[in-house]
Design a protein around this nucleic acid. Structure first.
Length: 843
RNA sequence: GGGCGCAUAGCUCAGUUGGUUAGAGCACCUGCCUUACAAGCAGGGGGUCAGGGGUUCGAGUCCCUUUGCGCCCACCA
C-alpha cells in the first residue's frame, strides 16, 4: 500500500498487467449457457475515434465487466471496419494510387514514396493489400486507446471487415442467399451517385433542402392548343415519355388517351392518368421522364411506359439521343445538350425553350428536398443498371411480418427503440440493393459465361464451391475455365461489383463467432447476448443483421440490443460536426484519467443523448481519489473480513444497508441500467465515508476495547471489499489498484457481491440512518456556532420518536466519540415527529 | 402528414407498479488546517415539476389537450 496513493499512472500499469495475465481472455471451454457474448461494433478505422466512441464503448464495457463478475465467461472481441468507401478514399490519397480492376496483380508492387500528381492505377488485389497495410497501422492506434480506456476486450480475438474471415463469411452468406433465392439480380432504374458512380441503397439516403426553380413549359395538343406543365428538371425534357394527371382531375380527363408533342423535340407522348399525380402541385399535370426521381420510376413501371434515358453514369447527358428523337430539329437540339452535366444541360435547355417560345414566363425559384447519398454532395440521379438485391421484406409482406416479429424477440434498451426498427421495416419500399460499383470491398463470388458474341449470360451465374472462398473473381477463374478465356467470346467474365459494406458488417455476429470456420466456437457463443450500437444505424446495421440471421439460421442474432445516444456539445449540438469541438479522446483521457472519463460516460443511459461535461469527469476523478484514500484508511485497521466478529448494532446495520445496495445494483445491472447501479453504489459510498467511518473511527482504533474494535474492523474490511466490487465495472483501474493492496488475483475476475455474503443476522438499517441524522445534527450545531468539527460539546440530548431514539442509542458511544461529546449524552423519547438533538456547549 | 422521445433548482440530471415536507451533483453562500482525503470536510439558500383540463382520499408520476425542442420516416412534377 503506497504512502500517498494516486490515480495517476494506473492506466499504464494495470492495462499491462491485464494483458500479461490474460485477465480478459475468453475461455472457450465454456458452454453457451455459461457464456455472455457481445457483438461489438467495429469502428471505422479510416476515420478517427471521437469522444462519442469513448462514451458508448464504455457502456458496453461496464456490462461486460458485470457479467464477467457474475460468473459468465464473457466473449468480447473487437472489430475494425476497414471496408468500404472511407478506406478506399483514404488509401487513394495516402498512397497516390487508384484501383483499376482490369489490371493484373503485381506481387512486387510498391506504392510511390510520395503520392504523385497522377494516381498510379493498380489491380484490385494490390489495392486491397494497400488498404490492409494502412488500416493495420490505424488499428494499432485504436487498440492503444481502447486499452487505455480499459475496455475488457480479449485482444487475441480482433477481426477486420476486410480480412479473410470476413470476406469468406460475406461470400458464403451471399452464395447461400443466392441458392435459396433470397439474392437475385435485376436490371432496373436505381438511385445513383454520379460522384462515386455507384448505386446506393434506400438505407443510405439523406434528404437535403436545395434551391431549384419551377419552369413552366408548354406542350402542344393535337388541336394546336397548348398545355402547360411545371418542372424543376427542364433538362430532362428529351427524356419525357408521358404527361400524367390524377384520374379524377376534370381539367385533364378529356386528354387521357390522347398524345401531345414535346416542345423543341416534337416527340409525341401520351397523356396518362395515375393516382400519384397531385392536382394541387404545379399545374396539376406533370411530365414523366426516364428518370427524374423515384416517382417517375413508379409511373414508368406501373404505366408500362417506354424508356428514353439520357443521363449516363457520370451524371452527364449521353452522346446518343434516345429513341423517338429522330427528326432533324430534335437531333440538332439534343446535340446541344449531349455531354453536358445536369447543371449545364439545364441552362442549355432553358435557352432552347426560350428560342422556341415554349418557356412560359420566368423560372420561379423554390426550395425543395432532394435525395442525396449520405456520403455524397451531388443530388442522386436515377440510372438503369444491373444490380444485386437481397430480399428484406420490402416487396413481400410475409417476410416483412416475419422480420417485424424478430424485432419482438429482441429486448431493446431502451424499449422504445423497437418502434424505430418497426417503422423502418414497415416503410421499406424495395429489396436491399447490395451491389456497389466500387473496388475496395468484398467482390461478388460470381462469374458469367460469355456467349459466342461475348455477351454475359446473367441468368446462370457461375459460382465457386464454398471451400474455395474467399475468391476474387477478377483474378481467379470459375471452375472449368482457364485464365485465357477471360473476357473472350465463349469464355467467361467476372461480376465487376463489390458488396455494400453492410452486406459484410451485417454478418459481424457470424464472423466473430466463427460461423462455418470454427463450429465449436460458434456453438458456444451464437446467437449472441448483446448488440450495442447507435440509433442512427438501426435501419442499416441492426436491420441487416436481423435479415441475415433470419434467413440463414431462423433466429435473431442476439437477445439484447443496447442503443446508445449521441454525445452533444455543451451547447447541445451533435458533437464532432463543427470544427470548434474537436476534442480528442486521448486528450480527454490524459487530462481527466480513464476512470474519470468512464464515470462521466456511465452517467449516460441507453438511448439518451448526453452533453459532453468536463465537470462530471472532475467528479469521477474525485470519486476515484476518494476511493483510494478511504481504502487506505480502512485497510490500516487490517483486512479481516470475518463476519462472525461483527457484533455491534451499528456495524450490523451498515452491512444490512449495504446488502440492500447490492440487491439494487444487481437488479439495475440485470436490467442494463448501469447508470443506476453506479448511482446506488456511489451514494452509499459517500454516506459510508461521511457517516459510518466517522462514527466508528475511534472504536476501530481501540477506544472501546478489542471486541468492539474487531467488530468495526471486520465491517470496514467487508464493506470495502463489497464496494470496490460494485465500482469495478465503472472504475476498473482504481478498484484494481486497491484490490491489489490486500487481495490476490484481479478484482475483475472476483465474484460480484451477493446479498448472501452480507448476511449478519438481525442487522437493522435504522441504527445507521438514525445515528447519521443525529451526527448531522451535532455537526450543524457546531457549524452554526462556527466551530471546528473537532470542537468538544459539554452534553447532548437526543429526543424524538421512541423507535428512532432507541436506534441512535444503540450506537450511543460511537455517536459520542464522533461528536466529541464530553459529558452527558441522554436519550429522551417524546411525541414529536422528528429526531431532535440539542447540545450544550462547553462553558 | 405519420411515428418516437424530451420538458423537474442557475447548469447536468435522478425520481422504479400513484403515497409523508420533490432529491443528487455542479455552481453559489457561510464556516472548518479535522493525523484517510483542502483535489478535503461541515452547514445553508435555491423548484407553481412547460401551460390547461381530468381520474383519485392523494398526481412530478395515470388519461386528455396545448405549447416548445429533438430524432426517424414519408412527401419531393
Amino acid at each position: 500500500m503506497p504512502e500517498k496513493p494516486t490515480i495517476d499512472g494506473l492506466e499504464e500499469r494495470w492495462s499491462t498487467v491485464w494483458q500479461e495475465q490474460g485477465t480478459y481472455a475468453f475461455d472457450r471451454s465454456k458452454t453457451r449457457d455459461e457464456v455472455y457474448s457481445i457483438d461489438t461494433p467495429p469502428p471505422t478505422v479510416s476515420g478517427s475515434l471521437h469522444v462519442g466512441h469513448v462514451f458508448s464503448y464504455t457502456h458496453t464495457d461496464t456490462i461486460a465487466r458485470y457479467q464477467r463478475m457474475r460468473g459468465r465467461e464473457v466473449f468480447y472481441p473487437m472489430g475494425w471496419d476497414d471496408n468500404g468507401l472511407p478506406t478506399e478514399r483514404r488509401v487513394q490519397n495516402y498512397y497516390g494510387v487508384r484501383c483499376d480492376p482490369s489490371l493484373p496483380y503485381e506481387p512486387t508492387f510498391e506504392p510511390p514514396d510520395k503520392p504523385g500528381k497522377q494516381q498510379v492505377p493498380i489491380s484490385r488485389r494490390n489495392f486491397v493489400e494497400l488498404c490492409e497495410r494502412l488500416t493495420a497501422e490505424d488499428e494499432l492506434t485504436f487498440e492503444a486507446l481502447w486499452r487505455r480506456l480499459g475496455l475488457s476486450v480479449d485482444w487475441s480475438m480482433t477481426y477486420a471487415t476486410i480480412d479473410e474471415a470476413s470476406r469468406t463469411a460475406s461470400q458464403r452468406a451471399f452464395l447461400r442467399n443466392l441458392a435459396r433465392g433470397e439474392a437475385y439480380q435485376a436490371e432496373a432504374p436505381t438511385l445513383w451517385d454520379v460522384t462515386f458512380r455507384t448505386a446506393v441503397a434506400q438505407a443510405e439516403l439523406k434528404d437535403e433542402e436545395r434551391a431549384a426553380a419551377y419552369h413552366r413549359i408548354t406542350f402542344r395538343r393535337p388541336d394546336g392548343g397548348g398545355i402547360d406543365i411545371e418542372t424543376t428538371r427542364p433538362e430532362l425534357l428529351p427524356a419525357c415519355v408521358a404527361l400524367v394527371a390524377h384520374p379524377d382531375d376534370a381539367r385533364y380527363q378529356p386528354l387521357f388517351g390522347t398524345h401531345v408533342s414535346t416542345p423543341v423535340f416534337g416527340v409525341q407522348v401520351p397523356v396518362v392518368a395515375h393516382r400519384l399525380a397531385d392536382p394541387e402541385k404545379g399545374s396539376g399535370i406533370a411530365m414523366i421522364c426516364t428518370f427524374g426521381d423515384t416517382t417517375d420510376v413508379t409511373w414508368w413501371r406501373e404505366l408500362q411506359l417506354p424508356t428514353r434515358a439520357i443521363l449516363g453514369r457520370d451524371g452527364r447527358v449521353v452522346a446518343d439521343q434516345p429513341p423517338g428523337l429522330d427528326s432533324a430539329p430534335a437531333r440538332e437540339a439534343y446535340a446541344r445538350l449531349a455531354g453536358l452535366t445536369v447543371h449545364s444541360a439545364r441552362e442549355a435547355m432553358v435557352g432552347l425553350l426560350r428560342e422556341s417560345g415554349d418557356l412560359v414566363g420566368e423560372p420561379r425559384p423554390i426550395m425543395h428536398m432532394v435525395k442525396f447519398y449520405d456520403k455524397g454532395d451531388k443530388p442522386l440521379e436515377v440510372v438503369t443498371s444491373r444490380q444485386w438485391y437481397i430480399r428484406n421484406g420490402g416487396r413481400n409482406e410475409v417476410l416483412r411480418d416475419a422480420l417485424v416479429a424478430r424485432g419482438h424477440e429482441i429486448t431493446w434498451h431502451p424499449s422504445f427503440m423497437r418502434s424505430r426498427y418497426e417503422n423502418w421495416v414497415q416503410g421499406l419500399n424495395g429489396d436491399w440493393l447490395v451491389s456497389r460499383q466500387r473496388f475496395f470491398g468484398v467482390p461478388f463470388p460470381v462469374w458469367y459465361a460469355l456467349d459466342s458474341d461475348g455477351n454475359p449470360i446473367y441468368d446462370t451465374p457461375l459460382t465457386p464451391d464454398e471451400s474455395l472462398l474467399p475468391v476474387d473473381p477478377s483474378s481467379e477463374c470459375p471452375s472449368g475455365y482457364t485464365a485465357d478465356q477471360r473476357d473472350v467470346p465463349g469464355g467467361f467474365t467476372a461480376d465487376p461489383d463489390v458488396m455494400d459494406t453492410w452486406a459484410t458488417s451485417s454478418l459481424s455476429p457470424q464472423i466473430v463467432s466463427g460461423w462455418a470456420r470454427d463450429e465449436d466456437l460458434f456453438a458456444r457463443v451464437f446467437p449472441m447476448d448483446l448488440r450495442p450500437q447507435g440509433h442512427d444505424i438501426i435501419r442499416t446495421w441492426l436491420f441487416a443483421s436481423v435479415v441475415r440471421a433470419h434467413t440463414e439460421f431462423g433466429t435473431v442474432p442476439w437477445k439484447h440490443a443496447a442503443i446508445s445516444g449521441w454525445i452533444l456539445d455543451p451547447d447541445r449540438k451533435k458533437m464532432g460536426k463543427s470544427a470548434g469541438n474537436a476534442l480528442t479522446p486521448v486528450g480527454m483521457l490524459e487530462e481527466h484519467g480513464s476512470d474519470a472519463a468512464r464515470y462521466w460516460a456511465a452517467s449516460g443511459r441507453p438511448g439518451t443523448d448526453t452533453a459532453f461535461d468536463a465537470s462530471q469527469m472532475k467528479i469521477g476523478r474525485r470519486l476515484a481519489i476518494k476511493i483510494l484514500n478511504a481504502s487506505k484508511f480502512t485497510l490500516t485497521f487490517g483486512p479481516e473480513e470475518n463476519l462472525a466478529l461483527v457484533t455491534e448494532p451499528l456495524d450490523q446495520s451498515l452491512l444490512a444497508e449495504l446488502s440492500g445496495v447490492v440487491d439494487r445494483a444487481t437488479k439495475a445491472f440485470d436490467g442494463y441500467e448501469y447508470t443506476r447501479a453506479l448511482e446506488v453504489a456511489e451514494s452509499f459510498f459517500w454516506a459510508f465515508c461521511d457517516n459510518y467511518v466517522e462514527l466508528v473511527k475511534e472504536r476501530a482504533y481501540g477506544a472501546r476495547g478489542e471486541a468492539a474494535a474487531t467488530s468495526a474492523r471486520a465491517t470496514l474490511a467487508t464493506a470495502l471489499s463489497v464496494q470496490l466490487r460494485l465500482f469495478a465495472p465503472f472504475l476498473p483501474f482504481v478498484t484494481e489498484e486497491v484490490w491489489s493492496w490486500w487481495q490476490t488475483g484481479s478484482i475483475h475476475r472476483a465474484s460480484w457481491p451477493s446479498v448472501d455474503e452480507l448476511a449478519v443476522g438481525q442487522g437493522d438499517p435504522a441504527v445507521l440512518s438514525a445515528s447519521s441524522v443525529a451526527l448531522s445534527a451535532l455537526r450543524k450545531a457546531k457549524s452554526e456556532q462556527k466551530l471546528s468539527m473537532r470542537a468538544e460539546l459539554a452534553a447532548a440530548t437526543v429526543s424524538g420518536p421512541e423507535a428512532e431514539v432507541t436506534s441512535v442509542e444503540a450506537a450511543a458511544e460511537d455517536l459520542r466519540a464522533a461528536g466529541h461529546v464530553l459529558g452527558a449524552l441522554v436519550f429522551v423519547p417524546d411525541d414529536t415527529p422528528q429526531l431532535t438533538v440539542t447540545v450544550t456547549l462547553p462553558s
